[in-house]
């Protein structure tokens, strides 16, 4: 029971950090779940994160994986609800106030200021993820090829990621 409360607290906190997308919360997600609570190892977290890129719906539904990994179905449910509720309530409230905020002079300043910080947070998340995932030149090359493919074509990102996985299996079997 205490663990469910801990899961709820961690994911409610992480929820508030998802500025500009879920990846912004990744550095703190790693710190809390791996270094502080020891709920899972860094490679396990990376695996769930990567699998999450293949799941439909909002990204970061992998929070349910982490919850389930720690405390089964209850953990998954608590992690999901805690991750959605704080920002969900905020969005709900601001959505109703928005008409009044639309011409607030600070709104564009906040949008632009937080926008650049959000890009920095996504980059930090990518660096931390990369440190754990790009452990040999093969993986660096794989990431570079996927990046190039996604920049140059309109292919659905799920395909090159699945293709990377199959390539990884092929290389292991050869």
């Amino acid at each position: 029971m205490k663990q469910l409360f801990e899961i709820g607290g961690v994911f409610a906190y992480l929820s508030l950090l998802t500025v500009g997308g879920g990846m912004a919360a990744f550095p703190e997600l790693k710190d809390l779940t791996v270094n502080i609570h020891h709920w899972l190892t860094f490679p396990e977290l990376i695996h769930y994160y990567s699998l999450g890129q293949l799941a439909p719906g909002p990204n970061m539904m992998m929070v349910a994986s982490v919850g389930a990994h720690v405390a089964g179905l209850g953990g998954a449910a608590v992690a999901l609800v805690a991750f959605i509720l704080p920002t969900g309530l905020l969005t709900f409230a601001v959505g109703r106030l928005w008409v009044r905020l639309e011409h607030w002079p600070w709104r564009p300043a906040i949008q632009r200021g937080l926008g650049s910080v959000a890009v920095g947070l996504v980059l930090a998340g990518a660096i931390i993820l990369g440190r754990g995932a790009l452990v040999s030149p093969f993986y660096v090359a794989l990431a570079a090829v996927v990046f190039a493919l996604l920049m140059l074509t309109k292919v659905n990102p799920a395909w090159p990621i699945v293709a990377s996985g199959l390539l990884g299996i092929a290389l292991y079997l050869v």
Partner: peptide
């Protein structure tokens, strides 16, 4: 499989960052 899709996911995140960056 998992180790290789993690590398692919890094490529995806970089693309997301570039797109977000281009916008903001």
């Amino acid at each position: 499989f998992l180790r290789a899709i993690a590398a692919g996911a890094v490529g995806l995140i970089l693309m997301v960052m570039v797109q977000l960056g281009a916008k903001v």
